[in-house]
Design a protein around this nucleic acid. Sequence first.
DNA 1: TCTGGGGTCCTAGGACCC
DNA 2: TCTGGGGTCCTAGGACCC
Length: 418
Amino acid sequence: MQYYILVDCNNFFASCERVFRPDLRTTPIAVLSNNDGCVIARSQEVKDAGIKMGAPYFKVKDELNRLGAEVFSFNFTLYADMSDRVFECLKQFSPDIEKYSIDECFLKVSDKEDVATLAEDIRREVFRATSLPVGVGYGVTKTQAKMASHYAKTSKRYVAGFSDYRMNFIGDMIDVGEIWGVGRRHTKTLKRRGIATLKDFVTTPEDTIKKLLHTPGLRTYLELKGIPCYDLESIPQPKKSILSSRSFGTRQTKQDAIFAALSHNICRAAERLRKQGSVAYTMTVFIRTSPFSTPNTSSSKTITFSTPTDITPDLLKAAKKLLKTMYKPGYEYAKSGVLLSVIVPAAQVQDHLFAPKSERDDAVSALMKTVDTINTKWGRGTIDMSCTTHENDTWKRIQGNVSPRYTTSWQELPVVRI
DNA sequence: TCTGGGGTCCTAGGACCC
DNA sequence: TCTGGGGTCCTAGGACCC
């Protein structure tokens, strides 16, 4: 037997901003999505004020002003780097560690250790090393650890074990919808059957759960009962699909401007594909207007290559053709994207019988490699495909208030005055 | 005026095969 | 009028997560 520990950064993006702006320690903070579209992270004050995750910014702007909140644009570079720092810090506590998301890590430790003390140590050390507050939850399965961390958060204890639920007391007060793995739809289904709380859930017969929620829901159920169904995934698996999509800074009506944006998506996706050493058999391209505007439209087209590829120009060429057949004049497009799927390791690919690898392919592959190396060293976009530039580049995102890249750019280092 | 982006797994149903 | 049975593979869509 062993314990799973979940370390979860509190209000992660908002906390990252606060680390470098100690003057904002007590100021409400909101962080917006790409294009400053909606609120995706909130400091505790903003949560307490009732501003919801995912709320459209234009709808809550006044309320945020009233709160005196500081509002930041999305600063992925900063958050990703802070996330790495937390991960590095956590490595000292166990070699069995999984980075579950940008703000969460699972650790596995043997039950010989005093897990309660360890959890406290983790919390203290992460804060010392990074200035980021974290919650720590533990249990004998991942789901138990996750629920415990949820409890730690809501009860403001910061550290909690699943046994703290003392099912007869607290289990009665936890809504089924708060269970990790039970989403909105399943919550409705369960409540219709009178299963309304965590305690109801774990005392329901197994086959009922299986019938209502199928395999994934059954796993959640077993995990809550202490039967592990998910192990740690310490080694990041290569992606099975790669999506790159983005809303435009402003609406676009012209095909060539949309292609510029789409080209950007393709360059990014192909870059990530090559980075994991894979090639893709299929590419799906999509464009759409805002679903909230009238008239609206959305279309997608998929192409399957006879030989899988990671070559940006080849993908671009195919995408251009697809776009031509999808684009309809007269619509105000708001977003484009590309999905690469049926992904296999590049080394595993057989040459196509009738299209053996040509000298041209080798040359272009070498070129891609060079471009990637330069962009890694000097920053994304140092070398770009010419089709991503367009005399009208209003498709590019709008960010009103992005904070400095304090930790990754010499020019943007914080300055300390004594 | 203004509503994110990136993933995974599972199931049902159709196509197809013998 | 009567119209098999069993299997695999693929895809679209649903549900979940952060």
